[in-house]
Nucleic acid binder design. Structure first.
Lengths: 140, 140
DNA sequence: CGGGGAATATTAGCCAGGCTAAGTTAGTTG
DNA sequence: CAACTAACTTAGCCTGGCTAATATTCCCCG
């Protein structure tokens, strides 16, 4: 019963639910919601336009507008424009935003590292082997 | 660099983000939100009390109250009581709720099954091996 | 017993984060 | 140059979290 796709699907579904709850707990109480953290992460390489951000986060444009508004109010990003097209607006990290991103990322990695440290070497190896497979899911 | 917990943590973190987005897409447009689906799933074996449901879903009691209110309005669950303790209230699936749960679950499993069918046997085996490890994360 | 604290739920009011619809401003094109 | 399209923003609604404030009911101890 473990190698048929349908049976496996049920197990995967159940594990995914568990991981979602885990992530929720990991994020609770941090100074950034996971969505805000995600957006900041997208800005790390440099300024991005609103439409790009919305697409990358699988979200409608108005939703991203509001997110950026909040981040701007918090002083973590600033808005800019494109000299070649006055319709487009860009968001860019402020220094404070970059620092905040760094700190939150460090906290998350530390948290996960702790979880992983509780596993055996074998378990970590098994997990590492499966990551590329998980990453493939949904790429179709 | 692949077997130190910290490096692994970064990879896991990234894959988790991907999976969260995948789940979001899977759920979009279905006749039940993932939270409602989750609650209905908890009711499948039989009536449950509010506190139990809240704990199981890692949510405060008032949040669960509201969820059940909505499901009740939708005709998918009914409330009951405990003859032995008049303080407790229980939620139970209606026939319609049971049918809805069945349909949504089938759709989700079908979707995941499709994803999994696109993998090779080896990849499925790798994934299956890693599921118990993933399930262990956060149990500490 | 009976009165007070603990347990169980609910309601109310707040916020984040989705959505669609409608409005604005700037390019593009016939 | 008028009309369409593209890029955003604003407004208004919903779900789903939270805490604080009630109600009820149970239970224990004096």
């Amino acid at each position: 019963m473990r190698d048929d796709p349908a049976g496996l699907a049920e197990q995967v579904s159940s594990v995914l639910r568990h991981l979602v709850l885990l992530l929720r707990r990991t994020v609770a109480g941090q100074p950034l919601t996971s969505q805000q953290y995600g957006v900041l992460g997208s800005l790390e390489p440099g300024p991005r336009r609103m439409t790009e951000l919305a697409e990358e986060h699988a979200v409608q444009l108005p939703t991203m507008t509001v997110q950026i508004n909040r981040l701007e109010d918090a002083g973590l990003v600033t808005r800019g424009g494109d000299p070649a097209d006055a319709r487009v607006r860009t968001a860019r990290l402020t220094d404070e935003g970059r620092e905040r991103l760094r700190a939150v990322r460090a906290a998350r990695i530390a948290h996960l590292t702790e979880e992983l440290a509780a596993l055996t070497d074998d378990e970590r190896a098994t997990l590492a082997a499966a990551l590329p497979v998980l990453a493939k899911l949904g790429r179709s």
